[in-house]
């Protein structure tokens, strides 16, 4: 479980009550009979966060990923640009 907090949508400051509320909200959004896989992820995340020791270990997780991955959670959609920019390239400038 890489980031239980991200799954439940709670911050590092979240206490027991907030974690439980977030868990119940997520379960309502993804009930086990409709999305069992998602529910299992939510339940695992809650199991981690309800135990203060596991919660602490999870809070201590941090990985030194490549820098270029740091902004990768926002998908990059290329922009459309005026034809003139393409023509400049095609002109060989």
């Amino acid at each position: 479980m890489n980031d239980a907090r991200a799954i439940l949508g709670v911050g590092p400051q979240a206490g027991d009550a907030e974690i439980r509320a977030a868990y119940l909200k997520k379960v309502k959004e993804h009930p086990p009979d409709h999305s069992p896989a998602e529910f299992e992820k939510i339940r695992d995340a809650y199991e981690i966060l309800r135990d203060p020791r596991r919660r602490a270990r999870q809070l201590m997780e941090a990985s030194n990923c490549p820098l270029s991955h740091l902004l990768s959670d926002t998908p990059a959609q290329p922009r459309h640009v005026p034809i003139e920019l393409w023509l400049e390239v095609l002109k060989g400038k």
């Binding site: 490549p66 270029s68 902004l71 990059a76 290329p78 922009r79 920019l85 390239v89 400038k93």
Partner: peptide, 30 residues
């Protein structure tokens, strides 16, 4: 890339992607 090609790339890439690309270059520099 030629100057025009660079201008095109900079315009087509979304702003965050520009930053990501700069970070990619930084990864390579490290």
């Amino acid at each position: 890339l030629s100057p025009a090609a660079r201008r095109l790339v900079d315009e087509v890439l979304p702003p965050r992607e520009l930053a990501t690309e700069a970070l990619r270059r930084l990864d390579r520099a490290f």
